[in-house]
């Protein structure tokens, strides 16, 4: 799956979970950039992303993410393995 395609899909998931009209993620986006993205919604986002891509992240890789780009790296790796 292409990175651009993943980010597009993530925009939809984030908008849905965070209850926003539109989200424009980039690789550098972090929780500080979106007010509604708090520790509670963070977990909801992870579950929604896992369900949408039918993948399962390890706890350690979730802890390591510093921005959306690193989340996309994990999705890319896991979807290519499937």
């Amino acid at each position: 799956m292409e990175r651009k395609e993943i980010i597009n899909q993530l925009n939809g998931i984030f908008a849905d979970v965070l209850d926003l009209d539109e989200v424009n993620l980039t690789g550098a986006t972090t929780a500080d950039d979106i007010e509604e993205w708090d520790s509670l919604s963070h977990i909801q986002l992870i579950v929604a992303v896992e369900d949408a891509f039918d993948i399962k992240f390890s706890s350690l890789e979730i802890m390591k993410w510093a921005n959306v780009g690193q989340m996309v790296d994990s999705i890319e790796r896991l979807t290519s393995q499937a």
Partner: peptide, 21 residues
């Protein structure tokens, strides 16, 4: 404690939904 206890636990229990939190 949030970073090293709460977050790993919350991530580990993420499939429990609200109850995990």
């Amino acid at each position: 404690i949030t970073d090293y206890v709460f977050m790993p636990l919350n991530v580990g229990l993420r499939h429990w939904g609200k109850w995990g939190l």
